[in-house]
Every structure is written in C-alpha cells, then in structure tokens.
C-alpha cells in the first residue's frame, strides 16, 4: 500500500511559523480530496522536538505525525530523519555552520538519513554551494519539489538531480496552515513509523508528488481535448 507524506513542515515550535499542529491536521482533513496525505513530518528549525506527543491529534484527524529536524550546514539546509539520542549527542543542531559531509556520514552511521532541502534556493541551497565547493558524497536524496520555492528554484533542483543522479523527495516547507501538503512524497510501501520512513528513504522506492493548484504542467505531445 502506498503512503503519501509531506516530508517538510514547520509548526509553531519553529521560530518563523505560527501554525499549530492541530490546525495542520484539520486542514489536511478538510482538503483531503486535493491533497491526499497520510501523514506529515515536522522538521523544526535547528532543533528536535523530543518531548512533543501528537498521538491524540493523530487519532482525532487520522493523520500520522512524525518528527525530524531541519539543520543548517556549510552546504545549506538539510533535513535529518531518524533523529535519536546518539545523533543529538554527536551534533549540536543549533550550530548554523554544521559540517555537511560529517552530518551526512555521521547521521547515516547512527541510523538516520540526511536529505538536503530546497537545493535550488540562493544561499541556503546545495546548488549554489556546488558552484564553489566539491560535491558531497553519500547523498541519498535531495528535495526536488519544495512548496515554498520561488520561480526557478525547483528547476535548478531538477538540474541537480539530473546531473548527479540523486533520488528525489517532495515537501511543502509549510510555515502556514493552508500550505501544508502542497508538495509531498509517495512511498511504494506502507510507512507508519520514523524507522520505516528512514528505511524507505534509503530504499529509493518513492517519488515526489505535486499538489499545487498552479503547478507547472508537463509538456503535452498532443493538444488538449476540449473540456479537459
């Protein structure tokens, strides 16, 4: 059974978001026809929200809530999935200049997986860093579709994926309730826990999915039929 998860979102636990988790889940419930999400991952900035317990909200809205982090490195921002005590002991997530290669390798060694996010974004994305520094090794995947991207950013990410053969995920990067789930990732497998998510991210059996109402349409070989 496939699972669709928004892998990148920020709740009010992040310093630049005012979105309560319950409001996100309620919005998903209301918009399920347009954005058929099974779950979201909260990727709070520079922290891991260890104490948060969303089980009651998950039950209320029938939406899975997993937790991860968005950290800042010398190659831009990166999502860390499978955060555990060992990872938190080794890396100070509040450090805004974490060494990217050490984070990628260290997190993998300790059971997690790191995914560079919004790689096409100026300053905080991988593409710009690759212009002046050697490419990183052992990159599992990058965020190809980011719901907060400006014009051209996802296209730069696509060129990066093509050039380096990276796998691709999608996430909304939502900081506002109504933007949750605009981009997400469809996994071939059933994913219900963070361990299963990490396992599947390493497997490569997934693809980014785009639920934006004005998303770029793939070029068509034939003219559209009237009424379509």
């Amino acid at each position: 059974m496939a699972t669709i998860i928004d892998l990148h979102s920020h709740s009010e636990a992040s310093d630049d978001s005012r979105a309560p988790v319950g409001a996100y889940l309620n919005w998903i419930k209301l918009r399920r026809a347009e954005r058929p999400l099974d779950g979201i991952v909260l990727t709070e900035h520079r922290q891991y929200n260890r104490a948060a317990d969303y089980r009651a909200l998950e039950d209320q809205f029938d939406v899975m809530v997993l937790r991860a982090s968005e950290v800042e490195t010398d190659y831009g921002h990166m999502l860390v999935f499978g955060v555990n005590d060992d990872i938190l002991r080794r890396f100070d997530f509040s450090n805004v200049r974490l060494p990217a290669q050490e984070v990628i390798d260290g997190v993998a060694e300790l059971g997690g997986v790191v995914v560079p996010c919004h790689p096409g974004r100026p300053t905080v994305g991988l593409c710009e860093h690759y212009e002046t520094k050697p490419p990183l090794e052992n990159v599992t995947a990058v965020e190809l579709l980011n719901g907060g991207s400006r014009k051209g950013e996802n296209e730069r990410a696509a060129a990066l994926v093509d050039r380096y053969g990276y796998r691709a995920i999608g996430g909304s990067d939502s900081h506002m309730v109504s933007l949750i789930g605009l981009c997400a990732t469809r996994f071939d497998a059933d994913v219900r826990t963070i361990d299963e998510l990490v396992r599947e991210l390493k497997s490569g059996r997934y693809e980014p999915v785009d639920f934006r109402p004005n998303r770029p349409r793939p070029r068509r070989a034939a003219p559209e039929m009237a009424g379509t």
């Binding site: 005012r18 979105a19 309560p20 319950g22 409001a23 309620n26 919005w27 506002m176 309730v177 109504s178 933007l179």
Partner: peptide, 17 residues
C-alpha cells in the same frame, strides 16, 4: 483562508498572501 478557530477565546487565525 480561515485556518484555525479558538472557540473559548473567540479568536480566529487567518493565512493571507
């Protein structure tokens, strides 16, 4: 969009752009 309502506080949160 109206995104959240606090019934007890009688307050409403709205996303705007």
């Amino acid at each position: 969009f109206v995104t959240h309502i606090e019934r007890e506080a009688r307050s409403v949160e709205i996303d705007v752009w």
